[in-house]
Design a protein around this nucleic acid. Structure first.
Length: 427
RNA sequence: GGACCCGUGGUGUAGCCCGGUUAACACGUCUCCCUGUCACGGAGAAGAUCGCCGGUUCAAAUCCGGUCGGGUCCGCCA
């Protein structure tokens, strides 16, 4: 007998079907029992008037008659005739999968990830993430971007910092890429518009709910731009598409977390860093010192300002000082202490960084000198600027942070299947 | 790197400040009852040397010291 997938059971009313899946709820009521079975397409209730050979969590095959019944969730159920246990638990589950909420400590949730991902509320996170990845890819392709994959084992740190993992590489040392920056810029010279969905590694010992040491960055880089605003417009357009898709295809997953996604504005408000500091000081009586970047509390307040003033969950902050940005950032023509670099704040948290890059070889050299970047090991990158690189820019966006913010997750680690942090290398 | 916080049955918590008979509650597990449950309901049972070591005390989950493990915020970032 052919297997029927649970989401198409309704097409087989009054017929006998075979379903396969996992028992995710089991209610014995005496003479009648209800067994909820889940496969990769959905859940359905099966009803039994006899003894059931399986227990909670078992993988089973069920043969039974499909009938419409308003008493069952979803309106359909299967009157079970035969149940075969395909695989059984030889140990007790460490927590109860049948409850709508798992109610676990983050540590427990992650330690038992192989089992906690079996809970539908946990699955919702990763189903939504799946939609996000597809949406980003589709949106970028529609805009003429070519998907690239760049090396994650590299010979020199792309941003000079000390925050790279050093690894052994045969008889040499190598580093794990903390960004595809150099490679995506190089590829602008070939394909003009490129994007990458890939892992980045950061060796920073942070202990927060918004950091992990390995995450998936949604990168893009585009050429022949007029200015940094072209980049922001493109990112804006991409976000509109992504969030539309998440709303359209992710409804049932969003519902698990009781959230709705408001529309992304067609023009996300944009404020200069120096201005937002003034606004936050005046409006919320919170002062950020003039010579530093905006701090997390400042970001939260910037998010609040965007909501109150523009009814937007998003806000761009532009013109970061050159001292805070990497050497390849294009400096402002009006004020060389400022750059054409921006951050994107979503619901009070930074989710993307981008900007226009310096494409003139001589200026790049000058900037490196000022920042005391040696350039050793990155000649392959620097030299490409001797060969007519067009004005260009791009962004890097934290994919897991988007999901964290959409679902209001307590930690970004909930949005990473097997997160890596200072303490966690397993599972 | 700086500051703060937490370790109690399988899970989530209470008790700790103000030391005192069988360490409490909820969920799960096991046994029994239940023909419309889906946070089912009812009756009963098992399950914890309170992270570890030492000290104070007649008496320590509780107070003190050490140690190990973990977390949060800040810095930095996505």
């Amino acid at each position: 007998m052919e297997r029927t997938l649970i989401n198409s059971v309704s097409h087989h009313i009054s017929k006998e079907v075979l379903i396969k899946g996992r028992i995710i709820n089991l209610r014995k009521m005496g003479g009648i029992s209800f067994v909820q079975v889940q496969d990769y397409t959905g859940k359905i209730q099966t009803v039994w008037g006899k003894e059931i050979p399986a227990k909670m969590g078992d993988a089973v095959e069920v043969i039974g008659f499909v009938k419409k019944d308003e008493r069952a969730k979803g309106g359909y159920e299967i009157e079970g005739n035969e149940m075969v246990v395909i695989a059984t638990n030889i140990e007790e589950y460490p927590f109860d999968l049948s409850k709508p909420k798992l109610n676990l400590q983050l540590t427990t949730l992650l330690d038992s990830r192989p089992l906690s991902v079996r809970h539908s509320k946990v699955q919702a996170i990763f189903k939504l993430y799946d939609i996000l990845l597809e949406a980003y890819e589709t949106a970028m392709r529609e805009e003429g971007f070519t998907e690239i994959k760049t090396p994650k084992i590299i010979g020199a740190a792309s941003e000079g910092g000390a925050n790279v993992f050093k690894i052994n590489y045969f008889d040499k040392h190598a580093y794990l890429a903390q960004s595809p920056q150099f490679y995506k810029q190089i590829m602008v010279g070939a394909f003009e518009r490129v994007f990458e969905i890939g892992s980045v590694f950061r060796a920073e010992p942070h202990f927060t709910t918004r950091h992990v040491n390995e995450y998936i960055s949604l990168d893009a880089e585009m050429g022949f731009i007029n200015d940094y605003q072209d980049v922001m417009k493109e990112l804006n357009k991409t976000l509109v598409k992504i969030f539309n898709d998440l709303t359209k295809k992710g409804g049932k997953y969003l519902k698990e977390y009781d959230v709705e996604i408001p529309e992304v504005p067609n023009k996300i408000p944009s404020v200069k860093l120096s201005e937002i500091k003034e606004i936050i000081k005046k409006k919320y009586k919170y002062e950020i010192s003039a010579d530093t970047d905006i701090d997390p509390e400042g970001e939260r307040l910037a998010g609040r300002y965007a909501k109150e003033e523009f009814n937007s969950d998003f806000i761009f902050i532009t013109h970061y000082p050159f001292s805070d940005r990497p050497f390849y950032t294009m400096r402002s023509k009006e004020n060389p202490e400022e750059t054409y670099g921006f951050d994107l704040i979503y619901k009070g948290m930074e989710i993307a960084t981008g900007g226009q890059r310096e494409h003139i070889y001589a200026s790049l050299m000058k900037n490196m000198k000022e920042k005391k970047v040696s350039g050793k090991g990155m000649e392959f990158y620097l030299d490409v600027f001797k060969f007519a690189m067009p004005p260009h820019g791009g962004w890097g966006m934290g994919s897991e942070r988007i999901i964290q913010q959409i679902l209001n997750l307590g930690s970004v680690k909930e949005a990473v299947l097997f997160p890596r942090d200072v303490k966690r290398l397993s599972p």
